[in-house]
Each structure stands twice: as C-alpha cells, then as structure tokens.
Design a protein around this nucleic acid. Structure first.
Length: 673
DNA sequence: GGAGTGACAGGAATGGGCGCCGAC
DNA sequence: GTCGGCGCCCATTCCTGTCACTCC
C-alpha cells in the first residue's frame, strides 16, 4: 500500500481525525483480523512441528532465522546531522496494517478510505499522521520525546483518544496490541484516507524479516535490555522504495510506548500490571548510521538496524548513540521515520510531507531484563546466530517421539520443561531452516521418503544459498555462497502467499538476508538484502530507477491472490487452492520461467559491492554441529534415541530448490516482479 | 517474590602475524 | 631477491543466554 494522503499539520492537530476506532485498534477486532488470516493462527509449525516444548504458559512453536546487522552504529555525531528544524514541519505519518497489508491488497471497495487512496497497495506503506512530538526535540533526541505518545504533543492529539472499548486510557497508544496475535488494520487505513486534502505518500517500506517477527510476535516479543545495551533480535530491517533517488533522507527508528501499561508475566502470559512509567528519560531514537543519504542509497539495499541497542541505563543516551533507553516490563513499538533532508543533512521545513513514519505492529515488544516466556527464549536461541552455543544437539536429541509431538507431553520430565533446550529437540533443524528451509521437508515428507542418514546434508543448504555461478556449478568455489542469490530469490507470486507453509522458510530466508545486510556492511546485492523484493532488482539492471512494478494483491473473502504485472495469477496459490502442501507449492512454483531467472547482478548499476564483504559461510558452518550443552535428562528418549527422524531428513538439492523457491515465493509477496 | 545485575561459557567475527607460493 | 597474493593460525572482541546473587 502506498502512502495515501498527506495531511497538513494544522489539520491533523485540529481535527483529531484519528477516530477512536482508527487510532485505537480494537483488541477484539484486531484479534479477529489476525485469526482470520492464516498467518497468525495457523502456522504450520505450530500445527505440525515435531518439536516438543513446554513453557510456562505457551506451547507454540516456530522456526525461521535471522542474522545481525552490519551497519556502523551511529554516533552522536551522526545524530547531529539532524537539524533541529522539524518542529512544525508537515509530516506524513503513514499508518498501515502491517499484518494484512503485506499479505494482500485490500480491495478498494473494502476500505472505507479507499475512495481516496490509490489502489496500489504495498506491504508496508507509510503511515499518514501528524507530526510526532519527537520531531520537535533537539538533537540527538529531538525527534523523539521520552514518551512521545504519552506525553502531550501534536502526535498525541492525533493518536490519543479514549476508547472505552480498548480498555486503554485516552492517552493514545495507537500500537496497542494483544500479544501474540492481532494487528491494527482498518484504523490505519481510515486514518489515512478519511481526510481530504491528503496527498499520496512517496515511500513504501517493507519489513524484511517480518516472518521472524511474526513468530516472536505470536508469543509476545520480548527484548532484553541491559545496562551496557543489548541488541534487538529480531532486529529491525527494512527495504524502502518510492524515494527520490537523488534526494537525501535521514532514516531513523524511534521506540515509543505501545500502551500505557506496566506488564508482568504471570501464569504464562503477559498481563497488564499497573501503569507505565511515562517519566523516563533517555534517548529513544536511533539514527541509521548511513544517514543522511540519498534515496538511491536507501533503496538499493536493506536498511538494517541490527546494531541498535536497547538499554535501561538512562545515562547511556548521553554517550552512546547506539543506545535506546527503555524501561523494563513496558511494551514498546518501534517506528521507522524517513525524513527528507537537504544535501548537507539539514532539514528543510519549508516543504510539507517531508517526514514519513512507518509502524509495523509485529515489531512490538516488551522490554525485559530477563526473558520471561521460554518460548521467546527458545526462539531467540533458535534464530539468533549469536546464541548458537545454546542450541541443542540436533543429531542426538531429536527423536521420532518428538517429531510428532506438538505440545508437551505429560510424560515430559520436569527437567525438560525447565530447561528450554530440552523443549526444542530440533534446534538444529532450525539451523537448517535458517539456510535452506529443510524444515519443510521434515514436515511434508513422510519419514520413509526422506533421504537416509548417510545423505550429505551439506548439499541442500548450501545449494540453497548458492551464488548464481554455483547454481550452475555447485562445485565452483565461492566465498559468498552464503548469499541468497537471485535464483533463490526469484519469486512466483502465485504461490507467494503460502505463508502458512512458507513463513518458516521465509523467516529463515529473511533472517538470513537480514543478517547478510546486517553482518555484512553494505551487502552488495539486494539479494542479500530484504528478500522481500529482490526479483525486481535483479531482473532489471537499470537499477532502482527501473524497478519492477509492485505486486498487487487482492483478497476475496479468505482467499488471497497476489500477482504482479506480467506474471501469472496463480491457481497455485495455496490460499486459493486451499492447500498447504509444500510439495505442491514447490511443484507449482518450480517451473519458474526464465523471466524470473536471476541475472548476473554484478552488472546492475545499483550494486555497490564493498571489498569487505564477508562470507556467510560461517553462519551455516554450524548447522550440523554438535551441541555441546545438553539440557535433556538421561531418561529422555531424545537422548537415548539413536536415530533421529530429522537426521535423515536431508534435503536433496532438488528439494532444497523447491523449498528455497517456496521461501522466496513467500517473500515474493513483498517484492516487485 | 520479583526484578535487576554481573560473571560465565560458548560461538563467531575480526584482525594481525606468519609462512608459502608464484610472478617479476 | 623482492614483492604481492593467499591461506592459516591465534588472540581479541563481540554477542548470546544462563545462572547465581543482590536489591527492593
């Protein structure tokens, strides 16, 4: 979805056009919306994952992967790049439903605001909104008040409202969500379209590792905050389009309170417990280290915030630009801001609509000093490469018993319930998923059909990330085989919405890609960037300026249909076909035409390959490594079991390709073809 | 009792030092 | 013989979750 309208600050301030319902997603409504969509409630992993796990309160499971970022952390100096002139500047605040919009295009007729909105909808359009009070603050935190939403300000007047139905005070918490499910939907659209005089926005933003975020979001994402600062995981990573390639922009993230509550983890769930402390001092803004930079720069690669750190040290903001000061047990909502600036980095307030804000509901999280939900802990361990040391032994732990176990068995030893690692006996499989989505095979292949234990498992996941040359010649050495290549990223939108089956893989791919961009500074290719839209980049060597057209989606009832100009509208869409059979999906998607075949990216004009690109091999080098730490009791069948079903779930190269295609297919949803 | 803190161990990335090899 | 490229080794640094302890 695109930015629909632009509202003058005065108008936004005076009209409080954000209705209660619009700015305050009704929990029930959002819940419904989420459940209505296969993504949120019918995750294949949760339904069929063989993983066993016990938690204090939840028993969901998930799986993809991610990796850290590479951008240099911004220093205070970078912050200083921002001129303190945004106050009063017309801003475009783009609200959007990240959960839905990225999956289907709401028919114009179905949206009250659609009458004024462009029909073109992108996964993550910018939000239309009033100026944030944050933007009236001087550098480095002039963009953000300590509690922008709660504190008084123009923004609050727009977003704030008292909604009896929401249960939240009228201070305005537009991002309030029920953890684990629910997204704001209509409110944002209404917000952006109901106002006359709004002008179309410019930018579209994609949350690159959204599947991973969703996985965490289902359990209510928790982010550790420490005195010295802790990186986010998943970290924020975006792809942006629609910017003026020659114009300069500052891009930064701020973190605001998502609701007015203080939260506590009780009985296995997060429950509100008192009021949030709104009087917290400290930096809430993280300026992307590349800021300011041209639109071309921002659009050509993934914009990662992997080095952003969260801390509860209120003094950290004074000397560390990487730090975002938060309070434990408070729920926060990160937001992405795109601010048009002059070439020298100063902002020009003479023109309206130079600030765009993007919010992704699934990135909401609760700050904690220690993980509360073991599901979150396990997800972190499973997906964060830095936590590799906490992953369990894939080969020895996994057992057939666990394979079919979706929920903790009464026979689970207390130990296994206490020790997170014991709950996920297939941690290593996640590692595989991280790179090749092997998990798909484990779920869709009958045990008997799986390759034998002796199969070389390295082939599949390697292939899944082969460079173009390697795709042709797997034997060819490549220090960059880590990268997801155009071939892998090629997308068939007709199957792109196979979220239920693909979300895991997509998450892996997205994570992988995100890490590529994060861990490898200036990842050379969009391939390595957000998997959300690689195809368009690759297919067109002319660069961002000739980006492929966006994908369009429509939703009829519960059926999602996505396509891109020039591509087939598919019957292979799992939603359309009503199947989540991975094989079918893969088969449907496998005959990707030459038109989607990647070209040699080395020629693309937008590619800037830094010499320091590191191989990501290291990331997958431990896929099958033996865990050194065990958390299973000796009596655990997982330990005694000699044969692991998963162990033999080796993906042949062919299968891998299918799965990869599947992953990519999902991401294709975000991409332009 | 719950939240916060710091030490700890494990994995991985990074960079410097060193040796080997081939070209000039 | 010199130089540059390359690969390997190792120390350092960073990041992670865990755990014991302290604080309120």
């Amino acid at each position: 979805m695109q930015l629909d309208h632009c509202i003058s600050p005065s108008m936004m301030l005076s009209k409080k056009f954000l209705s209660v319902n619009s700015s305050y997603p009704h929990p029930g409504a959002s819940e419904h919306a989420l459940h209505e969509h296969p993504i949120s409630t019918s995750d294949n992993l949760e339904r069929s994952s063989p993983l066993k796990k016990t938690t204090r309160g939840m028993t969901n499971q998930s799986d993809p992967d991610n990796f850290p970022d590479s951008k240099e952390a911004p220093g205070d100096g970078q912050r200083s790049k921002l001129s303190p002139v945004l106050d009063g500047v017309s801003e475009i605040r783009h609200n959007f439903d990240g959960s839905a919009a990225d999956r289907y295009l709401l028919p114009q007729s179905s949206q009250s605001q659609s009458s004024a909105a462009p029909t073109t909808m992108f996964p993550y359009p910018s939000q239309h909104g009033a100026a944030h009070p944050a933007f009236s603050i001087g550098s480095p935190s002039r963009y953000m008040a300590h509690h922008p939403v709660i504190t008084n300000g123009a923004y609050n007047s727009l977003l704030g409202n008292s909604s009896p139905g929401t249960g939240y005070p009228g201070t305005g918490y537009p991002y309030t969500q029920q953890y684990g499910h629910s997204y704001q939907g209509a409110p944002f659209y209404q917000f952006s379209t109901a106002q006359p005089g709004l002008v179309p926005g410019k930018a579209q933003v994609y949350l690159c590792n959204r599947p991973l975020w969703l996985k965490f979001h289902r359990h209510q994402t928790e982010m550790i905050i420490t005195k010295q600062g802790r990186r986010m995981f998943p970290f924020l990573s975006f792809n942006i389009s629609g910017l003026d390639p020659t114009q300069h922009y500052n891009i930064f993230v701020d973190v605001i309170l998502a609701d007015p509550n203080h939260w506590r983890f009780q009985g296995g769930k997060w429950v509100p417990c008192g009021k949030a402390d709104t009087n917290v001092q400290g930096n809430r803004v993280y300026m992307h280290p590349d800021s300011p930079n041209t639109g071309a720069h921002w659009m050509r690669q993934e914009i990662s915030f992997g080095k952003m750190k969260l801390t509860n040290n209120k003094g950290a903001s004074n000397n560390n630009g990487q730090m975002v000061v938060l309070q434990s047990l408070h729920k926060y909502q990160p937001r992405l801001h795109v601010v048009e600036v002059n070439e020298d980095g100063t902002e020009d307030t003479s023109q309206p609509g130079r600030v765009q804000t993007f919010t992704f509901p699934e990135t909401q999280f609760i700050a904690v000093t220690a993980y509360q939900n073991t599901d979150i802990t396990q997800l972190k361990i499973d997906h964060n490469p830095f936590a590799k040391g906490f992953r369990d032994n894939y080969d020895t732990i996994y057992t057939g018993c666990d394979l079919d176990r979706l929920t903790p068995s009464p026979n689970d030893s207390p130990r296994s319930q206490i020790v997170p690692g014991a709950r996920y006996s297939m941690a290593s499989s996640f590692l595989q998923d991280q790179f090749v989505s092997n998990y798909a095979k484990s779920r869709f292949h009958p045990p008997g059909s799986m390759p034998g234990p002796g199969t070389d498992r390295s082939v599949p996941h390697t292939n899944g990330l082969l460079s173009p040359q390697q795709v042709e010649d797997p034997g060819a050495p490549s220090p960059q085989r880590w990268f997801v290549t155009p071939a892998n990223n090629r997308l068939d939108f007709t199957a792109a919405s196979a979220y239920d089956a693909a979300t895991d893989f997509a998450g892996n791919a997205a994570t992988l890609l995100s890490y590529a961009a994060a861990g490898v500074k200036a990842l050379p290719l969009p391939t390595a960037g957000c998997a959300g839209r690689p195809l368009g980049y690759y297919s067109d060597p002319t660069g961002w300026g000739a980006r492929s057209p966006p994908q369009y989606c429509t939703k009829t009832g519960s059926v999602l249909s996505c396509w891109a100009p020039g591509t087939r509208v598919g019957s292979s869409n799992p939603y359309l076909s009503g199947t989540d059979d991975a094989e079918t999906l893969a088969a449907d998607r496998s005959p990707l035409g030459e038109d989607t075949k990647p070209k040699d990216l080395s020629d693309t004009s937008w590619i800037e390959t830094p010499p320091s690109i590191k191989s990501m091999d290291s990331s997958d080098s431990g896929i099958y490594e033996q865990a050194k730490r065990r958390r299973l009791s000796p009596s655990d069948p997982a330990v005694s079991g000699s044969s692991s079903p998963l162990k033999s779930e080796v993906l042949p190269s062919r299968d891998c390709e299918k799965n990869c295609a599947k992953d990519l297919g999902y991401y294709g949803f975000y991409t332009h073809t």
